[in-house]
Design a binder for these strands. Structure first.
Lengths: 334, 334
DNA sequence: TTGTAAGCGTTATCAC
DNA sequence: GTGATAACGCTTACAA
């Protein structure tokens, strides 16, 4: 493995000159550049970036903390991050935590140990105090799942408003008893969405029923469990508002096993607008999140932090959109 | 930001001693350890791993090259890799290439530049010669999508055999005209699976029909396009063998829009056994791949390469399994 | 058991 | 334009 010294020797110049050539400085004589390039070619020299990294004390890497990538929601946000990062010359590292605090800590230590220049949290197990402290110690941005009260830049949709819009839509189409399936108090987004749900019901003069509010999680299985609980009630609700597409599909699939047809017998609405929402049978009405844009914007904010530009925290809210498909029964206006 | 020198000064010892404490050497007096730990605490010292990395010339990082993570197949393999890597003390970097050769090159240069200790390819745009050369220059393993003729360790299922089993199953259940939807010659797996398909047909004395062999890709949309082409034929086939669950779902969803019911009117079979195969309506018969194990094994092989153990290439084939669900019509034995 | 000092491969700051 | 040379923060012979 040849080093910059070998190149310098072969080209008959100093290492400083080789470094200049490598970094495209313009104060090198063209003939010298040629000679250096020839030596690089001959030795098949590849610069060892660890040297540069140590010298410059910057890694050009960022870390993204995600609870899982099995849900297409996160993989799309991640894609937005990666494309933005890439065009700024950064590489992306991934920490899949499964929402385990120890695993998360172990990974974010990389930041403290200078192995990455910054961190984007798509979810974190830390509380407001810990996250605030972390963000003070190194560049960080929080996206998707925020932590109430933490001092850190954020990017997300307005979860309260999104749920409000979704439930209002169901109400407008004649649903009165609406179940709410979410991940419970663990997630800030779930809390906000639940508030939106309750506000919408209140607007319509409906008192929420305890039995219709189910905290099961964001997965397919969570939806399945929720459906099984609903099936034990005396009477099924008119509609189910699920806080992820996966959950909605779990609900639909479990109901189908009991001969209950979505749309005809019950309306179901998802959240996120993953690709499967379009391809499921029936296709899913859902709240669309701008996943790619969330990721892109999150990197932008992080990049600003890394470069010390605009050091005050920003809180970006991106627009959601209701995507109507046939899993919800439309009431003909009379 | 304090360094090892600051700690040494405060503790009244040399940097070597601090380093020994940091690395848990046992030849340090207990009192000295205490003193160093106290200094570390007081300064809130975090070791800068860039120094260690440069000195040891190992990064404890690996790079995983994937075409996409939107397909759950890859995210599960990745999970297997990450868990194995983690327990060996390695961090995982992700290169999402979208099958773009330039993007891939740009990323794998990280390996040549010593920013990662090894690379796992879940897919590559390189040909056999290029991949062989790469694997000779730095530790690398190829999994899932292999490159025929390249000298590199591999982990995958037996794609030929898997397709053979799948198509045989359809034939046994009375299907004669079976469409084959895959990603075409671009993917080695598709070539192998197609050979399995043709062998199964041959065994049954059936000549393959050109019009039933569709190369569209691995995505939902690919399935949709394939279905639209099938719908233009005089007569629909008895069954569709799709080489990914996403494709199968694309097919089913597009057929449904034309009032064609899967199982009753036509059988459809997928590949991979992603979670959605279980939750789709109808649930999908599919070939199950041990995604997690593939990832786990791929890391093991890479780890061996990095440690120079068992330097000869290995070629691991892991078992597939046919998962029967209701998207295929079963023929009652007479 | 501890300290000294020579690296690891670069880049940056001086001189010249 | 170019060359010495001192960093960057750490690990590790070797010496003491």
């Amino acid at each position: 493995m040849s080093t910059i010294k070998d190149v310098a020797k072969l080209a008959g110049v100093s290492v400083a000159t080789v470094s200049r050539v490598l970094n495209d400085y313009d104060n090198v004589r063209p003939e010298t550049v040629k000679a250096v390039q020839k030596a690089i070619e001959e030795l098949d020299y590849q610069p060892n970036f660890l040297g540069r990294t140590l010298r410059r004390l910057e890694t050009m890497k960022i870390l993204v903390v995600v609870p899982t990538i099995s849900n297409q929601f996160y993989s799309r946000v991640l894609k937005g991050i990666q494309l933005a990062a890439q065009s700024a010359g950064y590489h992306t590292m991934l920490a899949i935590t499964n929402s385990d605090a120890d695993i998360e800590q172990e990974h974010i230590n990389m930041a403290r140990r200078k192995l990455v220049d910054g961190v984007i949290f798509l979810h974190t197990t830390m509380d407001a105090a810990a996250l605030t402290e972390f963000a003070a110690a190194c560049p960080a941005v929080s996206a998707c799942e925020l932590v109430g009260g933490a001092s850190i830049s954020t990017v997300s949709i307005d979860d309260f408003r999104a749920a409000l819009d979704g439930v209002r839509f169901l109400l407008q189409n004649g649903c009165r008893r609406i179940a709410f399936v979410s991940a419970g108090d663990l997630y800030n987004s779930s809390r906000c969405r639940r508030m939106g749900y309750e506000r919408a019901l209140a607007e319509a003069g409906i008192r929420p029923e305890e039995a219709l509010i189910l905290d099961e999680g964001f997965t397919f299985n969570a939806g399945k469990r929720a459906a099984e609980r609903l099936l034990q009630l005396d009477r099924l609700p008119d509609a189910v508002f699920a806080t992820s597409d996966s959950t909605a599909i779990g609900v639909i699939s479990a109901l189908a096993q009991h001969g209950i047809r979505v749309c005809e017998d019950i309306s179901v609405m998802g959240f996120d607008n993953n690709q499967i929402a379009e391809y499921y049978l029936p296709p899913l009405t859902t709240i669309s999140q701008p996943q790619f844009d969330i990721g892109h914007k999150a990197f932008e904010l992080l990049h600003d932090k890394i470069n010390n530009r605009s050091c005050e925290d920003q809180h970006i809210l991106l627009p959601h959109r209701l995507e109507y498909r046939s899993s919800v029964k439309i009431q003909q206006s009379t």
